[in-house]
């Protein structure tokens, strides 16, 4: 099942913030985590993640540092900031609300059989 572009775009921010709330991470690991959690069904064009990360950093929600990774190559690690945690809480309640509305609508559908 492929998810529409609009939905991918809308959900990218809360997903990134939620993954970073678990601990520091980097671009490639974030895309892998999303792929894993969606059972491989949610495919991002990997490169598109970075502009989103950079925007979140500019908004002060996350912060990045460059370090030498265990592979011996330079890598940019991202951390969530306190403003990011607040933003994540807000996003979470919004998504839960949308989720609950849709759930009720679909559950109340009369059974046709």
């Amino acid at each position: 099942m492929s998810i529409s572009k609009d939905l991918v775009a809308a959900s990218a921010t809360p997903m990134i913030l939620a993954i970073l709330a678990e601990g520091e991470s980097y671009g490639y690991a974030i895309t892998r985590r999303v792929r894993e959690l969606s059972g491989g069904q949610m495919e991002w064009t990997d490169g598109m993640l970075y502009p989103v990360l950079h925007r979140l950093e500019r908004q002060g929600l996350i912060k990045s540092v460059e370090r030498i990774s265990e592979t011996g190559r330079k890598r940019r690690y991202y951390h969530i900031q306190s403003r990011g945690k607040t933003a994540l809480d807000k996003q979470q309640s919004q998504w839960m609300l949308v989720h609950s509305v849709l759930n009720q609508l679909w559950e109340s559908k009369p059974c046709l059989t």
């Binding site: 980097y26 950079h54 190559r73 890598r75 940019r76």
Partner: peptide, 17 residues
């Protein structure tokens, strides 16, 4: 340049995997 560095690092991680 830093964008290219980051994308290259991603590409190399993916290739390793």
């Amino acid at each position: 340049r830093s964008d290219l560095d980051e994308l290259e690092s991603h590409l190399r991680d993916q290739i390793d995997q």
